Simulated assay, not measured.
Amino acid sequence: MIEGLLREYQKELLLKNNVKTTIERKLYQVKTFLKWCNSQNIELSGINSADIEIYLLQKSTKRGVQVQNREVIHHFFDICINRGILFENPAAEISIRTTTEERQFSVPSIEEISRITERIRMVDTLTALRDYAMFEMAFGSGARIGELVSLDIEDVNITEKTTMLKGKGRGEKKCRFVPLTDVSVKAIQEYITRRNALNGALFISVTGKRMTVSAIYQRFKLWSAWNPHLFRKAFCTCMARNGCSCEMLSRLLGHNQASTLNHYSHLTTADLHNNLHRSHPRSPSFSAMN
């Protein structure tokens, strides 16, 4: 029975356009929870909200981890309800509170990012040039680490100063075009010129293969105390503080589902460029206005 439920859960994840790594992670989380229930002699049909709360607290004290596991368990129990194994979802009653400490997060400032990129620029190697371009892409466009991995040279339009980012999920509907700062464009152009490359993966390892998520993460940690996602948060923070509208920022970050992008149809590429060049500290017009 459990195997059948897991297969059905996996099918639903595929239908929702989850990427392979997300599906594997969610299946692992469900299996870990079911294994814990078995160790506690708790039958699937007898699980209640108190059991789930105990599991979540034992799993981690971090709210983010608890929320993620709770959502996965909730989704799995929805399938159990559809199959008639449960009549109500015990995970629906669970509310995970945010502490004051967890609401606060630290992101690198523009001064810290400048110090990091200046230090990278002092090293005259192809690897350092690649890392510099990665840092500028993460901060200059708010790209996710997975989007940095999947970037191809053909995705970057040097002339129009735009790039296509392949977002979370599958298919063309998950792709978005975003403008690039002048610094990002110059860094990418210098890197691909030095590589003498015209197509293929933008960021490659010393062996010539496309860099992995783990490899990019390690390069960020080598040069700084910050992981790549915090550079995405720094992008968001800088843009918001300097007047970028919420709807424009949401589009730049790719936070919207394809079904909710219709009300953004009146926004043009020029609108995106104007907002970026007015709000991002890497843009020449930003310096002139401030």
Rank of each mutant, 00 (worst) to 15 (best):
K11P: 06
K16W: 04
V19G: 09
V19I: 09
I23Q: 06
K26W: 04
K26A: 04
Q29N: 11
D51I: 09
D51A: 11
Q58C: 15
Q58V: 13
K59A: 07
G64T: 13
V65A: 15
V65W: 14
E71K: 05
V72F: 03
I73S: 02
H74K: 08
H75L: 13
F76R: 01
F77H: 08
D78P: 02
L86T: 04
L86H: 04
E88Q: 13
E93S: 11
S95T: 10
S95R: 13
I96G: 04
T100M: 13
E102T: 09
Q104P: 01
F105G: 06
S109M: 13
I110L: 12
E111Y: 08
T117L: 08
V123F: 12
V123T: 11
R130V: 01
Y132K: 01
Y132D: 00
A133S: 15
M134V: 09
G146F: 11
E147S: 06
D152T: 01
I153P: 00
E154R: 15
D155S: 07
D155M: 05
T159D: 14
E160M: 11
E160D: 09
G167K: 01
R170M: 06
G171K: 07
K173I: 02
K174H: 11
F177P: 00
V183C: 03
S184A: 14
S184K: 01
V185Q: 03
K186C: 05
Y191I: 13
R194G: 00
R194A: 09
N196T: 07
G200N: 05
A201C: 10
F203Q: 03
G208R: 02
R210Y: 04
T212D: 08
V213C: 07
A215N: 05
Y217N: 10
Q218G: 08
W223C: 04
S224W: 00
W226R: 02
H229L: 10
H229V: 03
K233V: 01
C236I: 07
C246A: 08
C246M: 14
S250G: 13
L252T: 00
H255Y: 06
H255R: 10
S259G: 09
N262R: 15
A270T: 11
L276S: 07
R278P: 00
R278L: 07
H280C: 02
P281K: 05
P281H: 06
R282I: 09
S287C: 11
A288F: 12
